[in-house]
């Protein structure tokens, strides 16, 4: 290890020399890696925003249970208590007739005057149940099973749409991550193989002089890491500019979209991208280095 640290400056000097030896090809490799990692950054950003949106929607997922008119106050409270204990139920709240009327007034806003046409409050009291949307079927079935319950109104269509959107985003995200991973590893490994081929005489000489595979190969690992991490930094920088401009645009035109704080989003994307760059650079380099024995 001491020997390794002592030669660290040599390894990076060698890496620079290997890059310069085939500079045009390496510049295009670098640009290609920037674009691929920018694609990954876009997916990570979209994923972060979608995840936050989904979390917020999940927190708002609820069903309404209407009970028979002949159930007395104690019966209703007992029913609320029983529903609260069901698996997948986050919270339960009794909404009386007056609150139901007020809510409708708020929803109708300027058109709320229409409610004055009714001589009596037309809204019934109900039980508002916030749920885990993934368990909607079992919860609805159990709530409908209570004899005091007249009917259950669920937003199953909306909740199922949310679930399918979440699944879709996840599938696309995974596909992009796999595609980016494979593409980067192949690009880097080909570049390393090219570097090995260009330096084959030097590698053979070092073998004959008794240098270890690690000593010979580490400059090539440095090349892979320098290119991917450099590309990752540039992709992150471009993405942070895009996020900043996007926040300004969305904040002005569609302010109700619940975006995560800009700073934490950029930090998250940076962390993911640099980590992925390091891993892909290392894997690509080692993959390319496996051809050293063939030199």
């Amino acid at each position: 290890m001491k020997k390794f640290m002592m030669n660290l400056d040599y390894f990076f000097k060698e890496a620079g020399r290997i890059i310069r030896l085939n500079s045009l090809s390496n510049i295009f490799t670098f640009l290609g890696t920037v674009l691929v990692l920018f694609l990954l950054a876009s997916v990570v950003t979209g994923w972060s925003i979608a995840s936050r949106l989904v979390t917020m929607l999940e927190e708002e997922a609820e069903i309404s249970a209407f009970y028979h008119e002949d159930v007395n106050e104690n019966g209703v409270l007992g029913l609320v208590d029983s529903i609260d204990k069901l698996d997948g139920v986050i919270s339960v709240r009794l909404v009386n007739e007056a609150e139901a009327y007020n809510r409708m007034e708020q929803i109708l806003a300027n058109d709320a005057g229409v409610l004055e046409l009714f001589e009596e409050n037309p809204f019934k009291a109900y039980i508002e149940i916030r749920i885990n949307p993934g368990m909607i079927d079992s919860i609805v079935e159990k709530v409908e099973g209570f004899k005091e319950i007249e009917f259950v109104r669920d937003n199953r269509g909306v909740l199922e749409s949310i679930n399918s959107i979440i699944n879709g985003i996840h599938v696309v995200g995974y596909l992009v991550i796999v595609a980016v991973g494979i593409t980067t590893v192949i690009i880097i490994s080909h570049m390393i193989r090219q570097g090995i081929y260009n330096n084959r005489d030097q590698i053979k000489t070092l073998h004959l002089l008794g240098a270890s595979r690690m000593f010979i190969g580490f400059p090539f690992v440095c090349v892979g890491l320098l290119i991917t991490v450099g590309a990752g930094l540039i992709a992150t920088f471009i993405m942070s500019l895009v996020i900043h401009q996007g926040y300004i645009a969305i904040g002005g035109t569609i302010p109700f979209i619940p975006l995560p704080p800009e700073g934490s989003l950029v930090l998250g994307v940076t962390t993911v991208l640099i980590s992925v760059s390091l891993i892909l650079g290392m894997v690509g380099s080692l993959f390319g280095l496996s051809s050293v024995r063939q030199v």
Binding site: K3, R17, T205, L206, L208, G210, S212, F215
Partner: peptide
């Protein structure tokens, strides 16, 4: 533990004489 002098020399171009000598002993 051997000091080889190859017929075709096997020096690395683009490096100084000192760098070539150092290359043989760095490890």
């Amino acid at each position: 533990r051997v000091g080889p002098v190859f017929q075709e020399l096997k020096l690395v171009p683009g490096r100084s004489a000192l760098e070539n000598v150092l290359m043989g002993i760095r490890f």
